[in-house]
Design a protein around this nucleic acid. Structure first.
Lengths: 143, 143
DNA sequence: CTGGATCCCAATAGATACTG
DNA sequence: CAGTATCTATTGGGATCCAG
């Protein structure tokens, strides 16, 4: 197995963040969980713009190892698993928001296609409340 | 030449951001420019925790292509170049801040080693003013 | 069957040596 | 100083395989 995400001994908080989610796919998975309320391997496969199965498996494992995600059996379907964001994972919401705002300023296509830019501009409080409610529910489900 | 950062036709603002700076090095270069006020190839080589020369060259080229950075001759040293952030580059400050805050919450080492976490917590306004002053100066220098 | 992970191989990123 | 060349390691796509 590759030593993906070997930690640099940097001490810089930017580098620490990048060591955790600084690749092309990890934040897209977090996006699906945090903004899209997706929870299953299959849902991630559909949603991510063409992520490969090996990459998805690898990143989910890494996210678990880093404590951003917890895996548990689906109580409604014992053959399936659920991946929940932990508090540490939900704490990335401001990072996603900052990226979305930046893209909203500089990408002319993306706001029409997703609505997330407007949503964030017009009703950040509502969006945060919605996310916070899910976070509390996930936390209860994991306990 | 590699087709690094080939754009995904995603339409998602998160994906758009990641297409621009979603790798292990780009944001570290931006960090040096934005928070460290570094401007030269040599300064980046020293500051980045061991970035390779080809990677640095590649990323600087890509940043120029994406309009986050502009390259010009150093007026004080005609054999050297200066790399300035554009407004689009400076607009990534909130992304860096969000990452730093997250790391401040979850990395026990990084705040002692850089002081940036405390700086951000205690004097964000001062930090922003400092960055804004540099942005204005860079903009004048490029014009 | 179907969700989840692995294998194989082509494509990319990266480290080091070297150059205009 | 600011890169390119070369060579190795890692990443990622797609098929395959395994467990229930």
């Amino acid at each position: 197995m590759t030593d993906l995400f070997a930690k640099r001994p940097s001490g810089c908080p930017v580098a620490f963040g990048l060591d955790t989610f600084g690749d092309r796919w990890t934040l897209l998975i977090i996006r699906e969980m945090l903004l899209g309320a997706k929870k299953t391997y299959g849902a991630f496969l559909e949603a991510e713009e063409g992520i490969s199965t090996n990459i998805l498996a690898n990143r989910l494992k890494q996210l678990e190892a880093d404590g951003l995600v917890e895996k548990r059996r689906d109580p409604e379907n014992f053959r399936s698993f659920l991946y929940d964001l932990t508090d540490k994972g939900y704490a990335l919401a401001p990072v996603l928001f900052a990226i979305i705002r930046w893209s909203g300023q500089y990408d002319s296509r993306s706001d029409r296609l997703t609505g997330m830019v407007e949503r964030l501009a017009q009703d950040e409080a509502g969006l945060l409340a919605e996310i916070e409610a899910r976070r509390a529910r996930d936390r209860a489900a994991r306990a």
